Simulated assay, not measured.
Amino acid sequence: MKWKLLGCSFFACLSSATWAQVPDPDSDQGKEMQVLVKSYIAAHPEVSIDDAITRLAVQTEILQPMQDLRQEFAGRLTAISIQHIPDQHILVELKGSSPVPNRTLTTASGSTRIVIETGHRHTEEEFYSIVEKHQDLLYSSIPDITGFSGRPGDDLLEVYIAGNEASAEELKATLRKLERVLGLAISLRPNMPRSVNLEYIQGGAVL
């Protein structure tokens, strides 16, 4: 099974220069910005328009620093992500108990906390290796799989199925057996359409 790691944000296609100044609202750039801000506020209604604009700007500026963090902790990295509550910050999840102090990253649009959380059981690579090793078992045990979503920081594999809630309920005993084999928590997400490519990626989207 093939897996992909998506960029941390769909705003990555925008350059930081896009946010250097507020564009004319009637321009193509301005209209695009309005769509992005509206989408962000819809997902995070507690955030003001001004804060949403700033957060989106910061997201374009922290992509490379996040890649640098990924390289720095390559041997321990469980997951790295942008979190939005209580503020927008970078969460770095690491395997093992050896502590690492938190940091603050400063970019053109503001400061971003880097929260480093240790104590996880698997690295990202180890997590996905477990899933790939048991791919055939998963497909043979769970009917109508349409995709997967991995959450290494939670030791959780979410399996997307075409079946409904009743189908998912019937598979509870099967899931418990699979959890013992894989050593991971497994949950089902029913009523998911079949993907063109049956791949799983970090973060919850189905390709």
Results as ranks from 00 to 15, higher is better:
residue 178 L to Q: 09
residue 165 E to T: 06
residue 142 I to Y: 02
residue 178 L to W: 12
residue 177 K to V: 11
residue 142 I to T: 07
residue 146 T to H: 10
residue 142 I to H: 07
residue 135 Q to P: 02
residue 182 L to N: 07
residue 181 V to L: 13
residue 143 P to F: 00
residue 133 K to D: 05
residue 148 F to I: 05
residue 189 R to D: 06
residue 178 L to A: 09
residue 134 H to T: 09
residue 179 E to Q: 15
residue 160 Y to G: 10
residue 154 D to E: 14
residue 169 E to F: 14
residue 141 S to I: 04
residue 126 E to P: 06
residue 133 K to E: 12
residue 184 L to P: 04
residue 180 R to V: 03
residue 182 L to I: 07
residue 151 R to T: 06
residue 132 E to Y: 05
residue 130 I to M: 13
residue 186 I to V: 12
residue 122 H to L: 15
residue 127 F to E: 04
residue 124 E to L: 10
residue 137 L to E: 14
residue 178 L to G: 10
residue 140 S to L: 08
residue 179 E to T: 03
residue 149 S to C: 10
residue 133 K to N: 05
residue 137 L to D: 13
residue 122 H to V: 05
residue 187 S to L: 09
residue 158 E to Q: 08
residue 141 S to G: 04
residue 188 L to I: 12
residue 137 L to R: 12
residue 169 E to R: 15
residue 167 S to G: 09
residue 188 L to W: 10
residue 172 K to E: 14
residue 124 E to F: 07
residue 166 A to F: 10
residue 161 I to L: 08
residue 185 A to I: 05
residue 182 L to Q: 10
residue 179 E to A: 02
residue 170 E to M: 09
residue 173 A to C: 04
residue 134 H to I: 07
residue 169 E to I: 12
residue 144 D to S: 15
residue 128 Y to V: 08
residue 126 E to V: 03
residue 150 G to I: 02
residue 122 H to G: 04
residue 134 H to D: 09
residue 154 D to R: 01
residue 176 R to Q: 12
residue 152 P to V: 00
residue 185 A to W: 14
residue 182 L to T: 07
residue 152 P to C: 02
residue 146 T to C: 05
residue 179 E to C: 01
residue 167 S to T: 14
residue 166 A to M: 11
residue 137 L to Q: 13
residue 184 L to T: 02
residue 174 T to V: 13
residue 159 V to K: 03
residue 149 S to G: 11
residue 138 L to W: 11
residue 136 D to T: 14
residue 130 I to K: 14
residue 169 E to W: 15
residue 163 G to R: 00
residue 178 L to I: 09
residue 148 F to V: 05
residue 162 A to H: 07
residue 154 D to I: 00
residue 180 R to T: 03
residue 164 N to Q: 08
residue 171 L to D: 07
residue 154 D to Q: 06
residue 182 L to F: 14
residue 124 E to T: 01
residue 182 L to M: 15
residue 154 D to N: 03
residue 135 Q to G: 08
residue 155 D to R: 00
residue 144 D to W: 05
residue 189 R to Y: 05
residue 132 E to Q: 14
residue 166 A to I: 15
residue 137 L to Y: 08
residue 125 E to C: 03
residue 175 L to Q: 05
residue 165 E to F: 11
residue 177 K to H: 10
residue 155 D to A: 00
residue 183 G to Q: 08
residue 176 R to D: 08
residue 146 T to A: 13
residue 152 P to S: 02
residue 140 S to A: 15
residue 153 G to H: 09
residue 177 K to E: 15
residue 146 T to I: 06
residue 180 R to I: 01
residue 149 S to W: 06
residue 137 L to A: 14
residue 154 D to H: 03
residue 151 R to P: 03
residue 144 D to C: 04
residue 154 D to F: 00
residue 164 N to C: 13
residue 157 L to R: 01
residue 177 K to Q: 15
residue 173 A to G: 06
residue 132 E to C: 12
residue 161 I to Q: 09
residue 148 F to W: 14
residue 130 I to W: 02
residue 168 A to L: 07
residue 158 E to Y: 00
residue 162 A to P: 04
residue 142 I to W: 07
residue 134 H to F: 15
residue 180 R to M: 04
residue 154 D to L: 01
residue 144 D to F: 04
residue 186 I to C: 01
residue 176 R to S: 13
residue 140 S to I: 04
residue 191 N to C: 10
residue 145 I to C: 11
residue 166 A to G: 03
residue 137 L to K: 13
residue 172 K to M: 08
residue 139 Y to A: 03
residue 139 Y to I: 08
residue 174 T to R: 07
residue 146 T to E: 06
residue 125 E to F: 11
residue 175 L to E: 05
residue 185 A to Q: 14
